[in-house]
Write a protein that binds this DNA or RNA. Structure first.
Length: 317
DNA sequence: CTAGGATCCTGTCAGC
DNA sequence: TGCTGACAGGATCCTA
C-alpha cells in the first residue's frame, strides 16, 4: 500500500503534528506486538521529535537524544496521530448514549483538525487502539498509533548516525526524480532476462515505486509489463523514468493515494485511485487512451494491470 | 552473479 | 451460513 507518495504525505503531515513542542516529549511507549518494534522503547522516553526524513518508502523520525525511529509500513501499515484534545472529545462521543451512528460520525468529522493519518486505507480509525494497533507512542500532547494488519511493517530504533548504514537504506537506488533514462537503461542491461515490471519494483534498481505506480508508469511509457528488461530501448527506459515521476507527482499533489484525514464519514480510501489511476484496479474498464478493456494478469507473482493495445508485447529476437 | 518462487501475517471476498 | 482457496499498494530469503 504505502508507496513513496503515501510515505511522503505522511512525513509532511506528521511534521506539523510531532516536531518539538507540537507533540512534546515522549512519555511512554506501548509495544502491543513485539515483532513490530525493534529495540528498547525506554530509549526514546523523554525525547522530542527533531525532524522527519524519508528514504524511499522508509520514514525516519529523528529524536532529540540522537536516536531515530526507522519506520517501514510495508503492505498494511498505518500511522495515525491524534492530539490530547481529540482523545478527550472522542472519548466523550464514544460514551454518550442515545446518539445515532450518523451523529457520532459527524461529531468525529468536526475533530479532523486534531488528527492526521496515513498509510493503508481502512475504516474505523476514530477509536484507537484497535486490534491492529501494534505500537502506541504517548507524547505529552497526543498519541501516535502504528497499526498494521499483517505485521510486515516495523518500527526500529537506531542511533541517528547509523540510519544511513542500515542494511535496507544503504542499498536503496536513486528516486526517479534524480535518475536519468541512461542510468536506468544501464541497469537494465545487467538484468536482461528479468521481467521489466519486477525490475522496477526492486528498490535497489530504482527507488519508490510499488505495485500501483509500477503499473501506472509502465502504462505511461507504453511498455508491456511482461517484457524482458533486455528488450527495452534507451528511449523506452527514459519514458519509464519520466512516467514514474509523473504518476508519483500527481499522487503527491493529491495527498497520496491514501488516507489523509482519516475519519471521513464517506469512506477513507483517498483520491488517487479514483482520480488518476489509468490501469490499476481498472480491469474490465476501458482504457482512457484507446477504449480497449484493461486486463489484469499476474507478473512476477504480483497482480498487474495494463492496456493490451497501448502496451503491446514485443517478442524477443 | 541472476532469476524465480516461497515466505512472513491477517483479513476479505468469490465460489461452492 | 460455513468452508475453501486466492489474493492483498512489500521486501527478504532460499534455491537452482
Amino acid at each position: 500500500m504505502p508507496e513513496l507518495p503515501e510515505v511522503e504525505t505522511i512525513r509532511r503531515g506528521l511534521k506539523n503534528c510531532l516536531i518539538k513542542e507540537k507533540g512534546g516529549k515522549v512519555l511512554s511507549v506501548d509495544v502491543l506486538e513485539k515483532k513490530s518494534f525493534l529495540g528498547d522503547p525506554d530509549d526514546i522516553c523523554g525525547a522530542f521529535v527533531d525532524g522527519l526524513r524519508r528514504y524511499g518508502k522508509a520514514l525516519i523520525i529523528d529524536l532529540s537524544n540522537k536516536k531515530s525511529i526507522v519506520c517501514h509500513l510495508r503492505m498494511t501499515g498505518q500511522l495515525v496521530w491524534w492530539d490530547s484534545d481529540y482523545a478527550k472529545k472522542a472519548f466523550k462521543i464514544k460514551s454518550a448514549s442515545g446518539v445515532s451512528k450518523e451523529e457520532v460520525i459527524n461529531e468525529y468529522d468536526n475533530l479532523l483538525e486534531h488528527t492526521f493519518g496515513g498509510g493503508h486505507p481502512t475504516d474505523g480509525l476514530m477509536i484507537l487502539p484497535n486490534k491492529q494497533t501494534r505500537v502506541i507512542v504517548h507524547f505529552e500532547k497526543g498519541e501516535l498509533f502504528f497499526n498494521d494488519q499483517r505485521k510486515f511493517g516495523f518500527m526500529k530504533l537506531l542511533s541517528t548516525d547509523m540510519v544511513e548504514k542500515d542494511s535496507f537504506i544503504c542499498k536503496l537506488a536513486k528516486e526517479p526524480w534524480k535518475m536519468s533514462g541512461d542510468e536506468l537503461y544501464g541497469k537494465l542491461q545487467r538484468h536482461k532476462n528479468s521481467v521489466i515490471k519486477s525490475i522496477i519494483l526492486d528498490q535497489t534498481i530504482i527507488c519508490g515505486l510499488g505495485n500501483i505506480y509500477a503499473d501506472e508508469a509502465l502504462h505511461y511509457a507504453k511498455i508491456n509489463p511482461s517484457r524482458r528488461a533486455g528488450t527495452i530501448s534507451l528511449e523506452e527506459a527514459s519514458r519509464l523514468v519520466e512516467g514514474a515521476r509523473v504518476v508519483m507527482d500527481r499522487s503527491l499533489a493529491a495527498g497520496g493515494s491514501t488516507i489523509r484525514n482519516y475519519v471521513k464519514s464517506d469512506g477513507t480510501k483517498g483520491d488517487y485511485l479514483e482520480l488518476f489511476a489509468e490501469v490499476f484496479n481498472r480491469q474490465g474498464k476501458e482504457c482512457r487512451e484507446c477504449g480497449t478493456k484493461i486486463v489484469k494478469i499476474k507478473v512476477g507473482g504480483r497482480g498487474t494491470h495494463f492496456c493490451p493495445m497501448c502496451q503491446k508485447d514485443v517478442k524477443m529476437k
